[in-house]
């Protein structure tokens, strides 16, 4: 049961990583990265590492995503000639 869930989550993580690399808009890439962290939290819980799961949830999908989003909000867009 848990094996199947782990494989499915692993495949979704790979797909999300591919999407994050290939997406044109930066903010979407950041959100895909946050999704990877969220799924990694589920994997850590399945592997019975709740300490790592809590840290990953707080730092990986919380702090880092928020900082990236704030940075993208404050960066000015300029046309490249």
């Amino acid at each position: 049961m848990f094996d199947i869930i782990s494989i499915v989550i692993g495949v979704i993580i790979l797909v999300l990583a591919f999407l994050a690399l290939n997406s044109k808009s930066l903010i979407k890439a950041v959100l895909f990265l946050s999704g990877i962290s969220m799924l990694a939290v589920v994997l850590f819980v399945i592997m019975r590492a709740p300490d790592v799961a809590i840290t990953e949830a707080v730092i990986g999908s919380g702090l880092v995503t928020a900082l990236f989003v704030f940075t993208l909000l404050s960066v000015k867009k300029e046309e490249v000639k």
């Binding site: 709740p50 300490d51 799961a53 809590i54 840290t55 707080v58 730092i59 919380g62 702090l63």
Partner: peptide
Amino acid sequence: TPGGGFPGGAM
């Protein structure tokens, strides 16, 4: 319980 100073502080 799981967790502790580092995750709590980051939270």
